[in-house]
Computed example of a mutant assay.
Amino acid sequence: MSNRPLEKNTENTSPTVSVVITCYNYGHYLDGCMQSVLQQTYTDYEILLIDDGSTDDTAEVVQKYNHLENFHYIFQENGGQARAKNRGIESARGEFIAFLDADDLWHQDKLAEQIPLFADPGVGVVYSRAQLMDANGEKMEVGDAGEYLRPRSGRVVEWLLFDNFVWFSSSVVRATCLQQFGGFDESLAMGIDWDLWMRLSLHCDFAYVDRPLLLYRVGHPGQMSKNADGRRACADRILDGFIDAHKERLHPRAVRQAQAYADCNRGYHYIDTDRWRSLRFFARSVCMHPWSLEPYKGLFHWLFRF
């Protein structure tokens, strides 16, 4: 990939897109990430790199990009991923904000394919499918992600109750939506994107490009999503808090089914560490949604686990 400079903004007008990259000790991956943005066929953008207190070679990697007209490097003391992303939102000048984590990569046509979907003024978030890759950048083949991880368009709030199907580093958000309805919840350690998508989905439509415009890296050291217990706790807090705050705007059947689905997942989570707690979650899932096969499958696994 070539390191071509961004177009100069000679009229001092705001770019259409602000690319917000957040980085914490991902200097090893940062150059590839930056190059994937610089290779975009859509060029009306600025890059804001938020360094969340990295102690590796991130600052050294950044030096090769400091000469670019529309590149802005912002260092902050380590405050967590939500604070870093909010810092990017606060500093952005674009009409749209495209999020990217420093260990991920974009397809060169990503922005070119996504930005036109905002021609519909009701659309607030545009995302895409993703291709998984390992720590070394090798593409990985994965099976069907399941019903609740299929991409959806339109008013997706009741689908988001079940699971987060929006790949974060594929997302582009209308900046006015973030200004009106808030950014990332800095009290959350994980799941900050799912929390944001649910809140935004109450007010705007989602759209997606049905092909993998994101290369998403998995399995490398430091990846927060590997913390299963922390992820489960944050997911429970996010879902329960959202339903409590907005129950009057959600269809009761969707709420019941989503809570049953969450309880079934909780049952599987505790099946090896707290069997009686696991059983209670499976039983509650059956009570909430007795026509679903999933909690019965969970009870079968629970019964014959040992």
Rank of each mutant, 00 (worst) to 15 (best):
H246W: 13
V125R: 03
E7G: 12
L303K: 10
D240S: 14
T10H: 15
E60R: 09
N164Q: 05
D195F: 03
D101T: 08
R284N: 12
V62F: 00
A228M: 07
R237P: 06
F300I: 11
N227H: 13
R277E: 02
F300V: 14
H72K: 15
M133Q: 11
A254M: 11
C234P: 07
F71A: 01
E11L: 15
D185I: 02
D185F: 11
W194H: 04
A98Y: 14
R217V: 09
L178N: 01
R305N: 03
D244F: 09
G88R: 08
P151R: 00
G191F: 00
R249D: 09
D205Q: 12
Y127W: 05
G222W: 12
E46P: 15
W167V: 10
D103Q: 01
D109Q: 11
L100N: 12
F282S: 06
S54L: 04
N9R: 15
V61G: 04
L132M: 13
V172E: 07
F282A: 00
F165H: 01
V126R: 05
D195E: 13
G182K: 03
S171F: 05
H269C: 00
L160F: 11
F168E: 15
T43A: 14
G32Q: 00
Y26W: 10
F168K: 15
E158P: 00
G154S: 09
L279W: 04
L279F: 10
W106N: 06
I89L: 11
D210N: 09
H251C: 03
Q180Y: 11
D52P: 05
L196G: 06
D120E: 07
A119I: 04
V173Q: 07
A233T: 06
Q114S: 14
S153F: 09
T22K: 13
I89N: 07
Y148F: 12
N78I: 11
C204N: 00
R150L: 09
T10S: 13
R275L: 00
V157R: 03
A84Q: 04
Q40G: 10
H251T: 14
F99S: 08
V19A: 11
D109W: 06
R152D: 04
C287D: 04
T41V: 03
V218M: 14
A258K: 02
A175E: 10
D274I: 08
P212G: 13
Q39V: 15
C23H: 04
F300P: 03
F71L: 04
H67V: 13
Q114P: 07
R83T: 14
Y268D: 01
R150M: 09
G219M: 09
E158D: 05
G267F: 08
F300E: 05
V126I: 09
I271P: 05
N265H: 12
F75N: 11
F282D: 02
E248N: 01
P151Y: 05
L161V: 08
E46V: 03
A258T: 06
G137P: 07
L215S: 08
Y29C: 10
Y29I: 02
G137K: 07
V286A: 03
I192P: 09
F168S: 15
T58R: 06
G219T: 10
Y148G: 06
G122K: 05
R237Y: 10
Y24P: 08
G94Q: 07
C204P: 03
L38I: 14
K247G: 13
D44W: 12
R211N: 10
V156Y: 13
I47M: 15
N227M: 14
T55S: 14
N86D: 01
R129A: 02
M140E: 12
T58M: 07
T13D: 09
G230N: 12
